[in-house]
């Protein structure tokens, strides 16, 4: 067993990132999908990349409905006010990665997933791989005039507050790295639906969860769609990126996995 601390070697991170150019990256553009289908697709695409059935891929998400996406190891009861969520038509879905709950509304968040074979992060610690896989985003935000930086273990942050958070899982010798960025935030709705305990804020020096996050909209005038476009351009410029689409087989496999796992109460309430 090992316990990792979040100290990174910048040289190793930079060298790894430089090696990702020209891997034949494919882009899956935004498409509004049901929350459970979005998280099921992550597992399908990770396994396909691991099996060599798909090149390294970047997928931008879009939401067909509001949802709370809880981390793999979170307790539903500790994180979500289930009655309030149900009353407001907010789905609760458990994802395959660890990390914290996120409340997403259509057009309020920007989410992307990166799928790549594990060998392309070989030599980096888990913590270093987080910083490496979001480095192009931090650089793109800086180019947009947002003073962003990476805050280990898994946050993209700014002087104004946290902008986004990442989570990873590994399956079939592939890495899934996904990040959600706050574009705008309905704080009132958020505090109705998520429980945010005092212990979680104990080392932050601030009293309110809402104050921890500073959505991008407070820091740039660019509309959401333009930011997504700049992120795609930022990735393409650094690593190369071909425009593609999900195959019918991938979509069908993800739908089957919703029925079998991600859409079931047994999985969502795996940790009640």
């Amino acid at each position: 067993m090992s316990v990792e601390t979040a100290v990174g070697r910048q040289g190793a991170i930079d060298a790894t990132v430089a090696s990702w150019r020209g891997l034949g990256w494919q882009l899956l553009p935004e498409e509004p999908l049901a929350p459970a289908l979005n998280v099921a697709l992550d597992e399908i695409l990770t396994r396909r990349v691991g099996a060599g059935e798909r090149p390294p891929t970047v997928r931008f998400w879009s939401w067909a409905a509001p949802a709370v996406i809880i981390g793999r190891f979170q307790s539903v009861r500790n994180e979500v006010r289930e009655e309030a969520a149900t009353a407001r038509g907010v789905a609760i879905v458990r994802r395959m990665t660890g990390g914290g709950a996120m409340f997403v509304q259509p057009d309020a968040a920007i989410t992307y997933s990166i799928y790549l074979p594990e060998r392309y992060v070989e030599g980096l610690s888990f913590a270093e791989s987080y910083a490496a896989l979001d480095s192009w985003v931090v650089a793109t935000f800086q180019a947009l005039g947002v003073d962003a930086w990476y805050a280990p273990l898994n946050d993209i942050t700014s002087a104004e507050g946290k902008i986004g958070g990442a989570a990873q899982a590994r399956r079939a010798r592939a890495v899934l790295h996904h990040t959600t960025i706050a574009y705008q935030m309905d704080t009132e709705e958020l505090v109705q639906i998520l429980r945010i305990g005092q212990e979680k804020l104990s080392d932050k020096g601030i009293a309110s969860a809402a104050k921890r996050v500073s959505p991008l909209r407070r820091q740039t005038d660019l509309p959401r769609a333009a930011i997504v476009e700049r992120l795609i351009d930022g990735f393409r410029d650094r690593f190369g990126l071909a425009d593609t689409a999900l195959t019918p087989e991938e979509r069908a496999a993800a739908e089957a996995l919703v029925a079998e796992q991600y859409g079931t109460a047994a999985w969502t309430h795996d940790l009640p």
Binding site: M1, G99, F126, L271
Partner: peptide, 15 residues
């Protein structure tokens, strides 16, 4: 006993 939280743990089964 239930252990939960927003931590990261590899592999899942270690929980």
């Amino acid at each position: 006993v239930t252990i939960s939280g927003d931590f990261f743990l590899y592999p899942d089964e270690a929980l």
